[in-house]
Design a protein around this nucleic acid. Structure first.
Length: 277
DNA sequence: CAATTTACCTGGGTGC
DNA sequence: TGCACCCAGGTAAATT
């Protein structure tokens, strides 16, 4: 499951092969992703130059231009099972290889078994990409200076929802998925079911650096295993040594108390009853 | 109106 | 071998 660190590692992996290059062709093998892929994409994209590859939350943003003038952005989301790899232009398409973006001799290929991913076009005429409906109401980036304890504190004063669910919701801070929410709450010693509105500024001041640390460590780990986005296996997804995630019944690494599993908002949550309050 | 909850999409894996 | 069931993340719709 690509979370923010995996998406960021993907961005770093594919950017060198895309930036400055011109789209030679686009092939849509299966348009049935989360939203139907626009059949006009090949016509729209052919000949455009990719000027930058950015990330917002878990969305990848490929800025496209013609003759120096911005034309729009290709927005790509990996969903739960998506991955992007460079393959040779003639490489036969394996099962679930739904979308190709050919740049030069290489093809950036989206493979997504569950088709929860997305490929969308946002034309420059519709305004900045940040105004796209899917991006407009996203929270702040967790690895920027914008993400502070004060922000979390102020944003949660009227929220009765649990801190875990607020982190996951993405409207305050983006990119903190199920795994990293559980892990960062453990490291900050905060019980995941605590009402977000009842957590003090001081406790958020502990949580914020832990979220940053967990995400940064995962990116570093992914970066260190980032061999090559031109192979079939690619960097894969990296596992940090988790403190709590997926460790139900196993001893807490700090105090040996068995890790508990609970369900919040139909999502599994893992925590230590002794370490987290 | 905003916050919160529920339903839903898909297919790999699991257990019977 | 088949098949019912569970699970995952993020969005839309429904509900409070």
């Amino acid at each position: 499951m690509p979370e923010l660190p995996e998406v960021e590692v993907t961005r770093r992996g594919i950017a060198p092969g895309l930036e400055g290059r011109v789209v030679a062709n686009v092939e849509i093998r299966d348009h049935r992703l989360r939203w139907p892929v626009d059949p006009e994409l090949p016509r729209l994209l052919r000949g455009l130059r990719i000027t930058s590859v950015d990330r917002r939350g878990k969305y990848l943003l490929l800025a496209c231009a013609a003759g120096g003038a911005a034309r729009g952005w290709l927005i790509i989301h990996l969903g739960m099972s998506g991955s992007l790899r460079f393959v040779a232009a003639r490489a036969p398409a394996a099962k679930h290889a739904h979308f190709d973006l050919q740049v030069g001799r290489q093809v950036l290929r989206l493979t997504d078994p569950r088709r929860f991913g997305a490929v969308l076009w946002h034309p420059a005429t519709a305004g900045p990409v940040a105004s796209h409906p899917l991006l407009a109401s996203l929270g702040v980036e967790p690895l920027t200076a914008e993400f502070t304890a004060e922000l979390l504190y102020n944003a949660t004063r009227k929220r009765a929802a649990s801190v875990k669910q607020v982190l996951l919701a993405g409207d305050t801070v983006v990119g903190v998925g199920n795994i990293y929410a559980s892990e960062s709450l453990f490291r900050a010693r905060i019980h995941p079911k605590t009402s977000a509105g009842r957590i003090s500024l001081k406790r958020y001041a502990t949580l914020v650096p832990e979220i940053r640390a967990v995400l940064s460590a995962a990116i570093a780990k992914g970066g260190s295993t980032l061999r090559d986005f031109s192979s079939n296996d690619g960097p894969g997804y990296f596992q940090l040594e988790y403190f709590v995630y997926n460790r139900e019944g196993l001893p807490c690494r700090i105090c040996a108390t068995p890790i508990r599993r609970a369900v919040q908002g139909q999502r599994a949550t893992f925590y230590c009853v002794k370490c987290q309050h």
